[in-house]
Design a protein around this nucleic acid. Structure first.
Length: 494
RNA sequence: GCAGCCGUAGCUCAGUUGGUUAGAGCACCAGAUUGUGGAUCUGGGGGUCCCCCGUUCGAGCCGGGGCGGCUGUACCA
């Protein structure tokens, strides 16, 4: 078989492998988030990766493009199934299915992989992890306020310092009021409303001028590509932009500005009142410096019906080329009162928050949070195979170490001693166990401290000296093996 | 999807106006050293020069088409 016939070994576009260091660090971060959610009284729940397509979203994939946006396939009874693209829609299905058995309000959290069939980019994958918390069955904005405060606590728990993040809150009802005022309130303008929404969502990236173009005729980007706009009149554009710029020095001031912008719209005023209530609740618990009302937050999703929130990191770091990197949003959420109701005859209010696990993870690495950059765990103690006919004896040493609770393994390859040393080095072994015929005759084992040895290597220039010195190596009686290994481990991992 | 840039070893890249057997550094493997990681030295494995068609005596290089990657933009329920 020629090489050309071989299958190329590569992960599919937008999918990533993870090694032991990243897995361990992510687990620590997830544990911290879980603790925070648990502390707030949320309970765990897990749903499947696959859902009936119609339970996930509002349309069935059509025959021509069944995988637009989501990964979909047909069951043997021809029903369409899809990989979940977020954790909110599956939760709505779960709550609707088990409605009678669940305590209401139902507070739950869950972490898991979600899948999107979209173009991947740096920091954007087709499989990624989210960590959500939701309160279902509580119409009060106290539920929204609580989730915002929990988001703040959670970020601090994983190592983001106070002042390095902000939880921004807005309300869809206020935006609806603005849209009503410029004549986009009707059912027939739903598409145009969504275009406006998405244009505002790009404020942080494109700035007010870019958004102005998107709200009007359209915008041409630097590659010369043209994006069609929402087609609003200039005074309507001014009104929308005024809304996004209504943020004042304090929450009270911002809400006052918003009341002016939506004056006359009942729905808009209701939204402003809800924001005032949230601001009061947040201030009552002393979170007013971390949870702020910010009209520029809209979120691109259609299903939000009330308060929406976004957790944004405000610090900057430099990448390898010295360019500033902003992490921006690491999580978001909002109230989705219509989602569970799709499955039931009665409306069920709900609100929730979702953390983008990978994005938060890269941010934590950038700020060197101890949660992700804690000490590397040591590799296993490796028992070297010096004489092939003594494998049973070597295996017994491994077994002794394991029963003493020491992570250990027998070298299972076929190479010589030098390669075995390299193997142990690559495995980050704290030490290796050596027993050749000399040691065996004396009833001893040789223990080499690889960490100490590496330090000693700096002072040694010639290879002959390196080999004869045998740094950080000592001999003990066989029955002292466990104690000696523990002593070496104690030197480095206390 | 649209637009721009780019495809040579596992990685980063050289490769002259088109010329014979396509190179370097790093990484990997082995030896120098019967049984010791690092450093040094020596050697070795590894390539359909993304694919196909065309031009040419001759293509890594020129032309056309395709595929793939990166960046921006759109979509992201």
């Amino acid at each position: 078989m020629s090489k050309a016939d071989k299958i190329k070994a590569r992960a599919p576009r937008g999918f990533a492998d993870r090694g032991p260091a990243e897995i361990a660090a992510t687990e620590r971060m997830l544990a911290a988030i879980r603790q925070s959610y648990e502390l707030y009284g949320f309970e765990a729940v897990e749903t499947s990766f696959v859902e009936y397509t119609d339970a996930l979203g509002k349309f069935l994939p059509d025959q021509d493009r069944p995988n637009e946006g989501v990964f979909s396939f047909q069951d043997d009874d021809e029903q369409w199934l899809s990989l979940r693209y977020d954790l909110t829609a599956p939760l709505a299905r779960y709550v609707a299915e088990h409605f009678d058995a669940l305590p209401k309000p139902y507070r739950s959290y869950r972490a898991g992989w979600v899948f999107r069939n979209e173009k991947p980019g740096p920091g954007r994958f087709r499989q990624f992890m989210q960590f959500d918390a939701d309160t279902v069955g509580a119409a009060s904005v106290a539920a929204d306020a609580e989730i915002c405060m929990m988001a703040a606590d959670t970020l601090e728990k994983v190592g983001i310092g106070r002042g390095d993040y902000v939880i921004k809150v807005n309300n869809r009802k206020v935006l609806d009021g603005v849209l009503e005022a410029i004549g986009l309130g009707g059912e027939t303008q739903a598409g145009q409303r969504l275009t406006v929404l998405r244009a505002i969502d790009k404020l942080d990236r494109l700035g007010p001028d870019g958004v102005r173009h998107l709200l009007g005729a359209g915008r041409k980007d630097e590659s010369g590509d043209f994006t069609k706009g929402a087609g609003l009149e200039p005074d309507a554009i001014a009104r929308v932009l005024a809304f996004t710029e209504a943020k004042g020095a304090t929450n009270a001031e911002t809400i006052e500005n918003l009341r002016t912008v939506v004056a006359g719209s009942a729905r808009g005023e209701e939204g402003a009142s809800e924001l005032a209530e949230i601001a009061a609740l947040v201030a009552g618990s002393g979170y007013e410096d971390r949870v702020t009302v910010d009209p520029s937050v809209v979120r691109g999703l259609e299903y939000y019906t009330g308060p929406v929130y976004e957790a944004e990191l405000t610090f900057q770091v430099q990448d390898e080329d010295g360019r500033p990197v902003r992490f921006g949003s690491v999580g978001g959420g909002g109230r989705y009162d219509g989602l569970v109701g799709r499955f039931r005859s009665e409306p069920v209010p709900a609100t929730g928050f979702s953390i983008g696990v990978s994005r938060l993870f890269s941010a934590l690495k950038a700020v060197k949070s101890p949660v992700v950059s804690g000490q590397e765990t040591p590799g296993p103690v490796v028992v070297l195979v010096m004489d092939r006919d003594q494998i049973a004896a070597y295996q017994r040493m491994v077994s002794t170490l394991r029963h003493a609770g020491v992570r250990a393994e027998l070298y299972l390859g076929s190479s010589g001693m030098k390669a075995q040393m390299k193997y142990a080095d690559k495995r980050q072994s704290p030490c290796v166990i050596i027993q050749g015929s000399n040691e065996r005759e004396r009833g001893e084992v040789e223990i080499k401290d690889l960490i100490e040895g590496a330090k000693a290597a700096d002072a040694i220039a010639s290879n002959a000296e390196w080999k004869s010195a045998r740094p950080a190596q000592f001999s003990v009686a066989e029955n002292q093996l466990v104690d000696a290994v523990r002593e070496v481990l104690g030197r480095h991992f206390g």
